[in-house]
Design a protein around this nucleic acid. Structure first.
Lengths: 216, 216, 216, 216
DNA sequence: AATGAATGAGCATTCATTCAT
DNA sequence: TATGAATGAATGCTCATTCAT
């Protein structure tokens, strides 16, 4: 499309993005029609196609914006922190925070993964997130703070545990984001073992090093 | 529906379920039409509606069967193991194994969570899975093997980390299920900390106890 | 598409072709909607798409059928005639006859030429018609009956004059096909010159031989 | 509309007419949108509707201009020629010339005939052209140069042959206009017969006199 | 049990036209 | 004069579902 937009135009476009996101999240992408969207906003159907080439394009834009915004938030949260472990903790907390404030986008991201044409976007975003975390994990390993294991695998494990806890505790369970963040941090750092068990285990197991393709 | 089926009828129905599952996984639920399914099997449209009331009913059946099968597998894997930590490890391994052998169903489950009418089924299944794990976590806590924390939260964290690692490593990364299982077990038990860091941490932090609604 | 059709199916399909041809001719291709067609026949919209992939496909089928039918008619008319000039005369008459009995198709063919995506079909059909006439023109030249000139050009001139007279005299003027056929034959054979003028001209002009690409 | 236009306004309007003609010819009337036109010119939509009431009005204007221009050309070509046969020859040549220099308009005229709302304009234009030729044909007959036959029919035959040859040879075949003009003249005057055949035929056939409605 | 045919509401998208600025 | 924005009826097409055989 690439239309030169006036200020009013930019507002309209954002209005469409916001409302569509909300409807898609509440109703599903396929089960929300363009008609639903424009009717809900009380505008004519042409408005939609003045600002977007297609329903799919708007959806892609939604995904891209969401991923971009989440990433921006994480970076900000980490910015001034020198300690690798603390950086990871703050990254986890920022994720949970963001998911809490953008619940509908969370659902959208999940749906997107289930359809072949959108899935690559999600995978790319996730790889980006993991790549962002990688240096900190590596620094942690170098500093002897983090177990010597494939940093990619560790990052993904953190991502999976954090996202799931955020959904279950915050979105479905109604708990505050901070509680979920603490739980996620605690689990990601120390797993489930008790002090005694961990000590025994760490003494005996020399770490296994699971690989993910692009490991260093 | 509830039709009394002959042996041949049962086979036909299963054929429809299997083929539909494959198409849905490859193509998406909404983007796969009933016509696609019956044409792919070389049968008439009537066949579909002889065995299922609707496309949605078939999909629900697919979800139920998948959840039931996964649960059966996990139970079997655990059956004779007395040690709580080992039970958890074997449950994790069984999950990864099953996801590896039923990749398409995994995609289906993910899609289902994104649509309001199917999401409750997924949540129920997940709660079931967590409930199944609960006694072992509690036993682990009682035995001093597992950190004193909300067992529901711990179970969910395990679920999230395991599922995500299975997807990324096995489905997307092409690694053997066993590798992913080992990584998941390792992460879930001990988190990411190194021996030294864990020791220091466990010495100082008296566990935080995050709550999830139905905790004991 | 390529659907195996029952007898009933074949009849339905033909019914659609016939009615659509009539509507297109009366109303224009673009100005006749699929809805117009199915409503006119009192059937549901699905019927149209059961038998044709698209509105465009039906139209192409219409064009192909028309060209095929016209050609069949011309061949039949010529079949047993040994004399080249008579063959040409009978071909002209057959064309006029056919256009008279298939007025609506005539309009369709004309429209088709005006749209880039259909024009090649028309050109191909015309080339076919001219190629069909070519041997007779050549035979006439060889026998000294027809002026030595590019046979392709002569054939096209015959086609142009005949079609136009058929439209103007028969379709628009309401004259019988036979009258138009006689006029076309007369003009195509002898032009407009009177006996005296022709004699003088033919005595003096040694024929110019205009070329069209594939001349022999 | 009938707007009083400044010089600049007249230029704008002509620009719209020219560009629209080109797009319609290349793309079809229905398949070219007003948006295509104004976007192609880099102006806003309002411009179009400032100068024309509707897309259809612009198209009618295009047709009228084309017919007017063609007629002007033919008249000029004939102006000073006293001999009737030469007048006809020069009229034919002028037509071919014009069609060569206005290829896109040719396509437009053809399309117009295929749609009921425009067809009358085309028929009127053709009748005008034939009426213009009529006096010369009649003069030719009176002078014994042209066969005694319905002059309207002869004129239409000339028109049909000429237009078709112009299209096939010049527009599609890439030959120079002069070649097509010579061929058309040759065919229209003498038909396809050789000297001998023509002599024999003209000796025996006392001309048939085919009628077209408004003949004298 | 199974088929080919039919239904018709619904969908994404287009586009001639109008309007406020 | 000109623009960007908006309108909304209409279009081609899809698809879950039903029906007659």
């Amino acid at each position: 499309m690439q239309r030169r937009l006036t200020e009013r135009g930019r507002r309209r476009q954002q209005q469409l993005l916001d409302y569509a996101a909300e409807r898609f999240a509440a109703n599903g992408y396929h089960t929300t029609s363009v008609t639903d969207i424009v009717d809900g906003l009380g505008v004519g159907k042409g408005v939609f196609y003045w600002y977007f080439d297609s329903k799919e394009e708007l959806f892609r834009r939604l995904l891209a914006d969401a991923q971009h915004d989440l990433r921006r938030n994480q970076r900000q949260a980490i910015a001034d922190e020198p300690d690798p472990l603390r950086r990871i903790q703050q990254g986890i907390a920022a994720s949970v925070q963001w998911l809490d404030s953008n619940r509908h986008l969370f659902t959208l991201l999940e749906f997107a993964r289930s359809e072949e044409r959108f899935a690559p976007l999600i995978r790319a975003g996730e790889e980006q997130a993991v790549a962002d975390a990688l240096p900190h994990v590596k620094a942690g390993i170098a500093a002897g703070l983090i177990r010597r294991d494939d940093p990619l695998v560790l990052s993904h494990a953190i991502l999976g545990a954090t996202n799931h806890l955020a959904r279950v505790m915050v979105l479905e369970g109604g708990e505050p984001a901070s509680t979920a963040a603490t739980a996620a941090v605690s689990f990601c750092l120390g797993g489930i073992l008790s002090a005694g068990a961990a000590a025994r285990r760490l003494a005996s197991e020399p770490s296994s090093r699971h690989r993910l393709s692009s490991t260093s």
